[in-house]
Design a protein around this nucleic acid. Structure first.
Lengths: 234, 234
DNA sequence: GCCGTACCGTACCGTTCGGTACGGCTGTTT
DNA sequence: AAACAGCCGTACCGAACGGTACGGTACGGC
């Protein structure tokens, strides 16, 4: 599963020093991950503009000089935040691909719930807002491509899942990309964009479990193998 | 229909003076609409940061003083841009609600195409990026609520359309809001968020006509009246 | 001819922010 | 103990931006 990360309520800085979950995050030292955590918190709370180098240095009890030494410049910092968070959202990837129909349905259900949980989490929303805001004309934008890594990974998981369902004979489709798009649409609808726009009411309406269940049911109806579910096109 | 606005290729400023379509836009004078047009152009081309008061004054051949006199402050300017654009995207609202099954299907198709066209247009994307970026914590955000006006209006049109289909006996549903969400999801999928993130390839993949057709077919399959389409819940 | 209005262009101010530099503290190495 | 490396805290710089003020100009009413 995707395991959304709760940013640890005790975000006190400089305190106990127990650096959350950590362990080598790959490219960053423990101290650096600590700072990135605080940066993410600032971003979630105050948005793009709240994350100034001075504010981060103050909140994380580090010097601006260190920030620039570690991350180069502000864009580098933003990129680091994104990759850091991406590394924390790991895909368990249900090593065992589903075989039976029930397993497949359960896997779909789990995927749908994970997708809803992650996409509507505070951190994901903040990161998406940041990335969306940094798209200028044609340039890849600061975090856009990096955030894509997270999106692509989820897509990859879904793709494998769909293929498993196809070979298992539980669903039928021709174009995997289009099929994924449909699944995504059924699960998310306009929830994501509404949440991004700050519509608080959008999220609360229904439990993620119920929403996921409804989406999976509809998806299975559309792509049922026996009767011609819908259109064969695309 | 929704009639996406082409921002007029000849965006030259101070030139001919033929102020695009205009006519009293409601709250703004001709000159002000002219300036708002230029502002929108700047926003589309360069994103949030490109729209500085100085840049706008230079590009629109007006003085900063006038900008502040007209719009109060920068936020007022942004709000004015949003309302200005919202007033240009008018809903023809197909005065005649569909009666026959064919009419209903055609109306759905038209709605789907309009939605795709509008949501993926340059201006809509720029405005959405702006609004998304201006969401801070709990505050309504600068353009968020205002942009909501546009979203809500589209929702309203869809709602009426769905009700017409229900009374006509072409579809069956219990929760109108959830049904609309499903329709939206089938039409848009992850296209909108991908486009917002700057994924150029997202838009081109399929013609809007084909996408709309596929979405409508799936939607009608799910909500067909005769056989129990899917789940009755929610 | 004179005034009021509306506007443009430019100069200006205060603040903020990204980025750099320096001094001092602490722990480690040799 | 001396040298060193890493880091914090603070001060500083230059640039950009939001917002304001001032002088100049075109135009319509009286």
């Amino acid at each position: 599963m995707l395991t959304a990360v709760k940013t640890a309520g005790q975000g006190d800085v400089g305190g106990g020093g127990s650096a959350a979950g950590t362990t080598a995050d790959a490219a960053f030292s423990a101290r650096q991950n600590e700072v990135l955590e605080v940066a993410l918190k600032l971003l979630v709370e105050g948005g793009d503009k709240a994350l100034t180098t001075a504010a981060l240095a103050r909140a994380a009890n580090c010097s601006k000089e260190s920030l620039y030494k570690w991350f180069g410049d502000r864009d580098g910092l933003l990129a680091a935040i994104v990759t850091h968070q991406a590394s924390r959202v790991r895909i368990i990837d249900a090593a065992a691909l589903p075989e039976t129909r029930d397993e497949f349905e359960a896997a779909l259900q789990l995927f749908a719930e994970d997708l809803l949980t992650v996409l509507l989490s505070d951190t994901s929303l903040a990161l998406n807002r940041l990335s969306v805001g940094s798209v200028r004309g044609e340039a890849p934008g600061v975090g856009a491509v990096l955030l894509e890594r997270g999106k692509r990974r989820i897509e990859e998981r879904a793709r494998r899942l769909l293929e498993a369902g196809k070979t298992g004979g539980h669903i039928v489709f021709a174009d995997a990309a289009d099929t994924y798009r449909t699944l995504y649409g059924l699960i998310i609808g306009d929830l994501h964009i509404n949440a991004l726009l700050g519509d608080a009411g959008a999220v609360s309406s229904l439990s993620t479990g119920d929403r996921a269940r409804a989406a999976v049911a509809r998806f299975l109806t559309l792509y049922a193998p026996a009767q011609a579910g819908s259109n064969s096109r695309t």
